[in-house]
C-alpha cells in the first residue's frame, strides 16, 4: 500500500479514524520512504512547536520588558513626596532668612558694621564684629540716625595673599580686640566664645 503525503500528514496530525490509522501503520512497516517522511513531519512538528513556544515566551518577555521599563520610568512616589512636602518648608526658610536680613539691616547701618572673624580666606571685605550691649536701641528709633557707636576697632579688609588666616575677636575687660591670625603658626582654633 502506498501512503499518500496527505494521509501521512493526517495520520501525523491524528485526524484519521482508528481503522485508517491502523492501515497506515501497517503500510509504514514496509515503506521506508514513508517512515522518513513521517519522521520529517515529526521533526518539523517539533521545530514548529519549539518555535511557537519560543515565540510565545518572547512575547511574554517582551510584554514583561515593556511593563518593567514603564515601571522604571515612572517617578518614584517616594522621591516626589518629599519634594512636594519640602516646598513649603523651603519657602518658609527663605522667607524667614529674608525677614531676618531685613531686621538686622534695619537695626544696624552698614557703615557701622565690622567683622571680627573670618575662618579662612585670601581676600575679604569685612564688616563689624558683633553688637555690643550699647548697640541695643529701640526698634522705632529713626533709621537715619546712627544711634549706635561705631566699634573701636574694625578690620575693614584683609588680603592673605597666598597664605591663609583667620580673623576673630578676643574680648577682655578692655574691650574687643580684633585678631588677625596668620596660618604660619600652629593650628589654633579661634575661641568659640566669639564667633562671627
Amino acid at each position: 500500500m502506498s501512503i499518500s503525503p496527505r494521509d501521512l500528514m493526517r495520520y501525523h496530525d491524528g485526524e484519521l479514524s482508528p481503522g485508517e490509522a491502523r492501515d497506515i501503520e501497517q503500510a509504514l512497516d514496509d515503506d521506508d520512504e514513508a517512515q522518513e517522511h513521517l519522521l520529517a513531519l515529526e521533526q518539523l512538528g517539533d521545530l514548529t512547536r519549539a518555535w511557537a513556544e519560543q515565540r510565545s515566551a518572547d512575547q511574554v518577555n517582551l510584554v514583561d520588558g515593556v511593563m518593567a521599563r514603564i515601571e522604571r520610568q515612572k517617578p518614584e512616589p517616594s522621591a516626589l513626596a518629599p519634594a512636594r512636602s519640602a516646598a513649603p518648608i523651603v519657602a518658609s526658610v527663605l522667607a524667614l532668612a529674608a525677614a531676618a536680613a531685613l531686621f538686622v539691616t534695619l537695626r544696624r547701618p552698614v557703615a557701622e558694621r565690622a567683622v571680627p572673624t573670618l575662618p579662612s580666606a585670601h581676600s575679604v571685605r569685612l564688616v563689624d564684629p558683633k553688637p555690643s550691649p550699647s548697640e541695643a536701641r529701640s526698634a522705632d528709633a529713626p533709621l537715619a540716625e546712627p544711634a549706635v557707636p561705631a566699634p573701636a576697632v574694625a578690620i575693614e579688609a584683609v588680603d592673605f595673599g597666598e597664605n591663609h588666616g583667620s580673623i576673630f575677636v578676643v574680648s577682655s575687660a578692655s574691650g574687643d580686640t580684633p585678631v588677625v591670625w596668620l596660618s604660619e603658626g600652629p593650628a589654633i582654633s579661634p575661641p568659640r566664645t566669639h564667633p562671627l
Partner: peptide, 17 residues
C-alpha cells in the same frame, strides 16, 4: 600679608599674630 585695612580709634589695639 599683602593688605590689612583697619579702622581704629585712638588707643584701641588690634593684633596680628
Amino acid at each position: 600679608l599683602p593688605l590689612l585695612k583697619v579702622k581704629a580709634k585712638l588707643g584701641q589695639a588690634f593684633i596680628v599674630a
